[in-house]
Design a protein around this nucleic acid. Structure first.
Length: 464
DNA sequence: TATATTATGACGATGCGC
DNA sequence: GCGCATCGTCATAATATA
């Protein structure tokens, strides 16, 4: 075999390998091929994913703009349009209830939302950092744009129809679905509804590590070739036990080298389910809290000072900072003197950390958070990094409209109302009470709506 | 020793993409 | 149909703290 033939074969197998990976990620073979042509066969898998996504975003532009025109229409007939949408929704539901046929999962063309709100694939939102090309544009009605600006977040994979409901309560604005996997080393599929401009966004620098190995190069040493993960799954609130590490180690030790297919499958299933990484010979373990902080974009030791369980829980519930910061980055130019923030369900302060990292001064933050551990974490971060005014409120129910009114007159209004309401009753991991938006915890969404609407009406369109 | 905190394992369904 | 991922909850045992 000649040298050239050898190179050729090596290149072919590398190409096949990468195509296979891309196909596994949900791209078509054609898309994978085109990306490799654009970027070269040596390009990192991550770069290839970006390339495919970018070309999809560009192609999507046309069709997406169609639906944006629906939104534009509401500039001229905002109220009537919404009412019509609601009526159509009702009649559609009735059709469904009484067994009428129908195409189902297609977004309708008249601006009304169907029950199902399809998630984009790839889940890249309106655009992502690193793309120079034209992206999605959207036009919001005058009534919907700030001030105040608002930013709402929750899990993308809520039960069917729940995002349509959320959208309906937030001025029918289309959610922006993003999987943070495109920005950092772990997946995080989330929907964001906001009235921020989407042009001229800029990412936080330095860009976060985009693969497991970029984030944790030292784990390469123990990573077996048959574990082909490049990204972690969603960081959740619970982590695997030390006993599981033991069980997996025993299974590996008693198998061959490399392990049998069935052992490999067992190990990989557990690794994916529990988000385990290779920390030693035959040894997998969950991420440490500080590693989760790193992936999620928080400063090191951000959650130090509370118990480990609480750290995992509050981190699992939090924003991915780079993702949120990318969306919020447009505020920097608009508010050179800083922002007044109403922060609902603050948690460990993902939104505030994002603003801080963007260099946006927080003149005021009125923060609502009920968790003792989260409050402690957030307060200690605030005290060591911020100079603005912080007002802490425990229960969102106690933040009555009257109190909001008095804050508005005290501070002259709010520039940003931000928050992700509880996902407990929406999240797929919840076996017991996945009751949707009306569930015990997730129903607090309606307090977000109440308070946002009150702020909007109290500020009455005037600049304050 | 009484109490508080932490660790562990059992517990499926949903909805998508293919 | 099949593979896959999923900001979780509960009861109980083990361990830490006073």
């Amino acid at each position: 075999m000649t040298m050239m033939q050898g190179d050729f074969l090596r290149e072919m197998s590398e190409r096949d390998e990468k195509i296979k990976s891309l196909v596994n990620m949900g791209f078509s073979e054609d898309e994978a091929n085109e990306a490799i042509i654009r970027c070269g066969v040596d390009a990192d898998i991550c770069v290839l994913v970006d390339s495919v996504s970018a070309s999809r975003v560009a192609e999507d532009c046309h069709s997406r703009n169609l639906s944006d025109h629906q939104v534009t229409d509401r500039c001229f007939n905002s109220f009537g349009g919404r009412k019509k949408a609601r009526l159509m929704e009702e009649s559609r539901k009735k059709r469904k209830r009484y067994g009428g046929g129908g195409q189902g999962n297609r977004p309708s063309l008249d601006g009304s939302d169907e029950d199902s709100m399809p998630l984009p694939n790839p889940m890249v939102g309106f655009n992502l950092p690193g793309y120079s090309g034209p992206s999605v544009t959207r036009m919001l009605s005058k009534l919907d744009t700030g001030p105040p600006f608002f930013y709402y977040e929750n899990v993308a994979r809520a039960p069917k129809g729940e995002w349509a409901k959320i959208s309906r309560n937030l001025f029918d604005i289309q959610p922006e679905f993003v999987d943070s996997l495109h920005l950092c080393a772990a997946a995080r599929k989330r929907g964001y509804i906001h009235n921020l401009p989407i042009e001229n966004r800029s990412p936080l620098l330095p860009l976060p590590p985009k693969t497991i190995f970029e984030a944790f190069p030292h784990y390469k040493k123990w990573w077996p070739s048959w574990d082909t993960r490049t990204h972690l799954n969603c960081l959740q609130t619970c982590v695997a036990s030390a006993k599981l590490t033991d069980r997996i180690q025993r299974a590996l030790v008693s198998s061959s080298n490399p392990p049998t297919k069935s052992v490999q499958k067992y190990v990989m299933d557990e690794c994916k389910k529990w988000n385990l990484v290779w920390v030693g010979k035959n040894k997998v373990a969950p991420l440490e809290p500080d590693e989760m902080e790193y992936i999620l974009g928080f400063p090191r030791d951000h959650t130090r000072g509370v118990g480990k369980t609480q750290r995992y829980k509050s981190l699992g519930n939090s924003f991915q900072v780079d993702t949120v910061a990318y969306h919020l980055s447009v505020l920097r130019r608009m508010f050179p003197n800083g922002v007044r923030v109403l922060s609902l369900f603050t948690g460990i302060g993902g939104g505030e950390v994002a603003l801080h990292k963007l260099g946006i001064h927080m003149r005021v933050v009125v923060s609502v958070e009920i968790g003792e551990a989260s409050k402690k974490i957030f307060k200690s971060w605030w005290d060591q990094t911020q100079t603005g005014t912080l007002i802490e409120i425990t229960d969102v129910k106690s933040l009555t409209n009257d109190r909001v009114a008095s804050f508005i007159s005290q501070f002259g209004g709010f520039d940003l109302v931000i928050g992700g309401s509880p996902c407990n009753n929406l999240a797929g991991s919840n076996r017991h009470h996945r009751d949707g938006l009306e569930g015990k915890h997730s129903a607090l969404f309606y307090d977000y709506v109440r308070i946002l609407n009150f702020v909007k009406s109290a500020m009455g369109g005037r600049r304050m």
